[in-house]
Amino acid sequence: MEKTLLQLNNISVVYSDVIQVLKGVSLAVEKNHIVSLIGSNGAGKTTTLKAISGLLKPENGKVTDGTIIYEARTVQNQSPETITRLGIIQVLEGRQPFKYLTIEENLRVGTATKWGEPYKKDLDIVYHYFPALIPRRKSLAGYCSGGELQMLVMGRALMAHPKLLLLDEPSLGLAPLVVKEIFRIIKRINEEQGSTIILVEQNARMALQIAHYGYVMENGKIVMEGRATELAANPDIKEFYLGMGVSGDMKSYKDVKSYKRRKRWL
């Protein structure tokens, strides 16, 4: 298992000591792969990411069971400061820029894990991937468009040279063309920078297109996993996540109401 970068062994997450969100999630991420996590709202995808990045703590959540192993060391319930310094950076859902900082200052916050080191070259790398940010570098992030902000927060994470990048719904609320652009860049980052990426997405079609491996979550459990191509071909996935009929053609709204299939794993 030399190639495994991150492994979650049967982890449970409980918020505020009472609300159990994850009920035994196991997954493994290989080096230099893009792994996508898909599932409906409330399935526990974001919580899984937070369990890895240590951001559960400020929300009163805790990994109560199981282990998270990253590069042969256990990292569950560590503080975000420690985990980010190991090279795991999470890009939060809903973008969350620093509204009163300029684009360039926003990017500089990304250097927090390597405070004091020169950062000019990193800025160039980010601008290389996101040329759209260059003309806006001096303007406040609060006044930028959604697409620009998504590029900004991904660039911000890239400044830290993450070994493992956790992306939470990068396509949220963006126009289809921008989504395509974003996914192209994710693919490029993965190939050129060698970053391993865990991608949480609602847009299952796009996610499975660029991912190597995929997991399907429901109700705090992993219900299915496989190579991305296999998952995309799975009739259940097609029906429930890709919106296609069994035959593979797009479903029309006419048929939506009458469910013919049941989810087999339930």
């Binding site: 951001l55 400020p58 985990i83 969350q96 820029p97 620093f98 900082l101 916050v109 990304g110």
Partner: peptide, 15 residues
């Protein structure tokens, strides 16, 4: 300034 602006995001970047 980033912490003042958005503490969660700052935390996620390792500030």
């Amino acid at each position: 300034r980033s912490v003042a602006d958005n503490q969660r995001a700052a935390l996620s970047l390792g500030v």
